[in-house]
Nucleic acid binder design. Structure first.
Lengths: 337, 337
DNA sequence: TGTCAGGGTGGGAACGTGCCCATTTTGGAG
DNA sequence: CTCCAAAATGGGCACGTTCCCACCCTGACA
């Protein structure tokens, strides 16, 4: 209980009978050190239970080996937790591999988001991972201007210049709608995500593309905008049913909205899938627990997080260039279609 | 594009025509500085867009204003994501208030967990938040010995000496079982959590206590051990049905196990709640989406995370003592009972 | 007018590390 | 055995901050 200070590189050097530099070299794996010295240093490290001080190291190297993962809480709160949880798992796994520290920043409102650039500057992270970016978002640009490599989960628009990892939203949506049309559905409505996000627009574009491809008309009458929430899905479903009573299928741009749609359909006494087929997007845990189990487009969310982290470490550690990657999606057919 | 370095405290001092110390005082809110000097410094800070370097600060203060949140991934993977997501939200919110940085560490296996102490030592965090601790776990003790204040989510046993925040597991379980007995159920089985965790034992103790209180026998025949997973719940339910065909209620120690139990009961053609009533524990999102909606014991998970973070910052920032807190739970009656 | 208390101020040292560069040691060739 | 290149080594400095301490200045009091 003597309040022993932690051993420093100096302590180790003295114990091993070498200079500080030699210890530093051993710790950082340089090969300019004799086998004998290395052995003595390693022994001293073990005896003293020495761990290098990453704060001091960061001061001189100007790197922290840490990245920030920024998640807007307003959107994660709404039950889309499985998505963010999977992102976090993927990111965390990749970071652990590269011995990179993960700093989590949940931003609760615009004010906190504006403050983010400063916070990130103070904290001296090596890079930033941004989830859920809206179209006109200026934050990513600001970060890159500050010299902070940034990787987005999902692009802001089709011409995105920054690094991003994306699911094949248009392709997945098209596959879903193709599936519905292929089973003889003729009035396939869609509940979109927010149209100020590329993910919302792309999935809508996929719905359109599949119709075009099949030579089926796709009137705007069949399109209702949602907000990725359960309530939003239910509300959109109601508007659609009022407007197009004879619709026989719905493609919802997220599982959560599909759940809301299912509830609304139940209220209207429409049977799923007999009267109306329903398809969601994401394949979250939810999809397996709805009644009936939900046909949906699986996106590899954990892989998405992992890829984001890998791109970022390639940039920060190996000076790689910006990269844009789109991951494939896959239709999972269950009983709602 | 001149590769302009970030301004340091020295740059600011020069610009404001004062010494480094004065700038430092202004930044840290000391009142030993004249109004005139303060104004000049603040102006310079704004002009130069200066942000203090927390790494350099950490080197001299020996504090990082960062805490680590450690979550075993093996357990978070199993669909209990809502629990961990809520913990993270609570912790993150409290950290943001105190301007504390949150470092997330998902540990995937024993090896990573063993390495954790070293990792945390290298990273120089001010304290550690540990989720999901098992009974004999030595890690918390090791951390405290290293001088790292540690707060647990859930205690290791009833005599826990370290700081922890806990839900009233025994009380909540007792309320659930009391509710079942009160509605005339006479063969109330239970699917427990892992008995090497206090949370598992305490909820079982609550089941026992409610029986004792009502003067109803609680034979071990009615107890089956689960592992907090859906499959575990289904498996335990099957064993119970084989052993006690005439059971008329089940208290599952988690929502996820209750979901598994519901599925198994459906396979056995038992109606819920007519033949068998089911109660879960946690009140996760899942509970509202089961068929029928699940009666469950709500635990304030986000509040739990928030409280953990507050206790830790009280210790690290204000030198407070260790603290043990138990948060109340609340029975939420839905249609499964 | 001289003294002194105390608010303001700034320079120096230290925190623990990586890296530059000068110096010492080693080993092999002549 | 000598010499020299290359390998091995260690000291000094810098990174950006906080804190200690010495100093200066102002104004009140004797």
């Amino acid at each position: 209980m003597t309040g022993n200070r932690r051993p420093t590189i100096k302590t180790v050097a003295a114990r091993a009978g070498v200079g500080r530099t030699t210890v530093s070299r051993v710790v950082n794996g340089s090969d300019l050190v004799s086998a004998d010295a290395r052995a003595r240093v390693l022994a001293a490290i073990k005896e003293l239970n020495y761990v290098p001080n990453s704060v001091a190291r960061g001061l001189v190297t100007n790197r922290t080996d840490a990245v920030a993962l920024v998640i807007p809480e307003s959107e994660s709160r709404l039950g889309s937790e499985p998505f963010f949880a999977a992102i976090i798992r993927g990111v965390s796994g990749a970071c652990a591999e590269s011995r990179i520290q993960l700093q989590l920043m949940l931003v609760r409102d615009e004010a906190e988001r504006d403050q983010l650039a400063e916070s990130v500057a103070t904290r001296r992270v090596d890079g930033v991972l941004l989830v859920s970016v809206h179209s006109g978002d200026r934050l990513p640009g600001m970060l890159e201007e500050m010299g902070l490599p940034t990787v987005l989960a999902g692009r802001r628009d089709a011409g995105e210049q920054l690094s991003y990892v994306n699911a094949d939203n248009a392709g997945g949506a098209a596959a879903a709608v193709r599936h519905l049309l292929g089973r003889g559905r003729r009035r396939v409505a869609t509940i979109t995500g927010p149209l100020d996000m590329d993910v919302g627009r792309s999935r809508l574009a996929g719905w359109r593309a599949a119709h075009r491809e099949a030579g089926v008309a796709a009137p705007d009458l069949l399109v209702e905008t949602g907000d990725f929430t359960e309530e939003g899905g239910a509300h959109a479903m109601r508007l659609l049913l009022e407007r197009v009573p004879d619709l026989d299928a719905v493609f919802a741009a997220s599982d959560l909205m599909a759940v809301g749609a299912l509830a609304e359909l139940r209220r209207w006494r429409r049977r799923v899938p007999e009267d109306v087929a329903v398809v969601g997007f994401e394949d979250s845990v939810l999809a397996r627990h709805t009644n009936p189990p939900l046909t949906t487009v699986r996106q590899p969310v954990e892989e998405l997080g992992r890829t984001m982290a890998r791109i970022l470490t390639d940039i920060t550690q190996h000076g790689a260039d910006r990269r844009q990657i789109t991951l494939p999606t896959e239709l999972v057919v269950r009983e709602s279609s």
